[in-house]
């Protein structure tokens, strides 16, 4: 399905238009997370205050992502068991991609923008974050540059996010056909959109999918970092991301 183009420009696939409508307002997400972070931590711990805040920020960002997924077409039709399987497969990729797109919109190379609106200089990350997190941030910045050069737009971002959500092999799900159909429609919508809107860049679709491979690699590295912090007893108790990390896959 396609929308009608009133301006005479290329049309946008209906699936992408629907996804754009589901996209949460960054201001609202920021306000909600800032509100949560201002509440006192339930489990006081020995971590530095900044690291504890970052953990809670990541938890709350993931809760926003779950809220988005629950409103997504197809996903909302699935049983909770299938919904859990999909999110357990891609939670870290969705978090990484959320971070990446925020940096693309932010557009500054020397610093990063947190979901709370705070700007952090990369020199501060280098000085205070430890080498594992610093390397992770730098690797993410390389992907930001790559996607910026590719001119990733909001339409492509929402479609890629949907593709990440539905990237699990359907053999692990009870409702195979619905999910397979969603995967195929999202792929087709992205291909059509890129060909229509970026005819001078014929391989944009393939380039974008290749970037998802790097998102996955980054998410693996991020999970290794989380596990390292967990083993060092540095994570807060009742941390959602650690629970996701430890949960059995599918």
């Amino acid at each position: 399905g396609y929308s009608e183009s009133f301006s005479g420009g290329p049309t946008v696939p209906e699936l992408i238009l629907q996804l754009l409508q589901l996209e949460p307002e960054e201001d609202q997400v920021r306000a909600r997370i800032l509100g949560c972070l201002q509440e006192p931590a339930k489990n006081r711990s020995d971590q530095p205050a900044a690291f504890g805040l970052l953990c809670r920020m990541a938890d709350q960002t993931f809760i926003s992502i779950v809220d988005w997924a629950r409103r997504c077409m197809v996903f909302k039709e699935l049983e909770v068991a299938d919904q859990m399987s999909l999110l357990q497969n891609c939670w870290s990729e969705l978090l990484v991609f959320d971070h990446i797109y925020r940096q693309i919109q932010y557009g500054k190379e020397g610093s990063i923008l947190l979901v709370t609106g705070q700007e952090v200089e990369l020199s501060t990350v280098a000085a205070q974050a430890g080498s594992l997190l610093h390397n992770l941030v730098l690797r993410a910045q390389e992907l930001v540059l790559q996607l910026h050069a590719l001119q990733l737009d909001r339409q492509e971002f929402v479609c890629l996010k949907f593709l990440i959500l539905f990237s699990l092999d359907v053999k692990f799900l009870s409702n195979h056909s619905l999910v397979k159909d969603a995967q195929e429609k999202a792929n087709a919508a992205l291909l059509d959109y890129t060909l229509c809107h970026y005819p001078h860049c014929a391989d944009k679709f393939q380039q974008l999918l290749l970037c998802l491979v790097e998102v996955r690699a980054l998410s693996v590295q991020a999970k290794e970092y989380l596990y390292h912090k967990h083993l060092g007893n540095e994570m807060p108790r009742n941390n959602l991301l650690i629970e996701m990390l430890q949960a059995r896959q599918t």
Binding site: I63, V66, D67, R70, V80, A81, Q83, M84, L87, Q88, N238, L240, E243, M244, Q246, A247, R248
Partner: peptide, 23 residues
């Protein structure tokens, strides 16, 4: 506290379960 299915993250189950969300 809410328990997810065996081996599944309980917090995620709570976030996704419609009956739990309604309550």
């Amino acid at each position: 506290p809410c328990q997810g299915p065996a081996g599944r993250p309980a917090i995620l189950y709570t976030l996704l379960s419609p009956s739990l969300m309604a309550s």
